[in-house]
Amino acid sequence: MPVWERSSTARVVPPARPRKLAKVPFVELADGRLQGVVSSGSDIGRVYVSSIAAGTYAFACSTNNNRPCGGARGTFCNHIRALVGEAVLQYGAERVARYLKAETPGGEPDAEALVSVMTGTRPAQGDTSAAAPVFSRFLRHLAYLELEPTTAPLPEMQWFPATRTAA
């Protein structure tokens, strides 16, 4: 077997790159979608749940109370564009492009090229049924901050070495 396959500490998922969280507090590549939570520019109490499906680029955007986003008619709204931008910061453009199955012409993709490739296919507007599960994943994500640190040793963490190089 090749060395990587024989390694107990082979790196499978690179760590997230640091980014500012105010605009887009939550981004993930999960359930076959790029999805996340985007802050409202005007109302601090409101957030938008935005997503793009891998492959079809079907997009959806609505508030956490399931009111449709006025900007997401016919094409990507600013929330979805912000989501792509922050996903590129967090995961690197290549990983986002690979997950969404979006091939950008030329070399290194960037957020702008990704958006233009996807909108260029005139993607359909998806339904907002994913909003509730995405929002509940965001809440679960936030709940991690509420958990107490412990000083009992976790020997299993030896399988998860720090990785200097981010995504």
């Binding site: 640091p18 994500h141 991690y144 107490e148 640190p149």
Partner: peptide
């Protein structure tokens, strides 16, 4: 050895 551990959101990295 002395260990301290915590669950965390994936966006808390580096100095965080």
């Amino acid at each position: 050895r002395a260990a301290v551990s915590a669950p965390k959101p994936d966006t808390v990295v580096g100095a965080g």
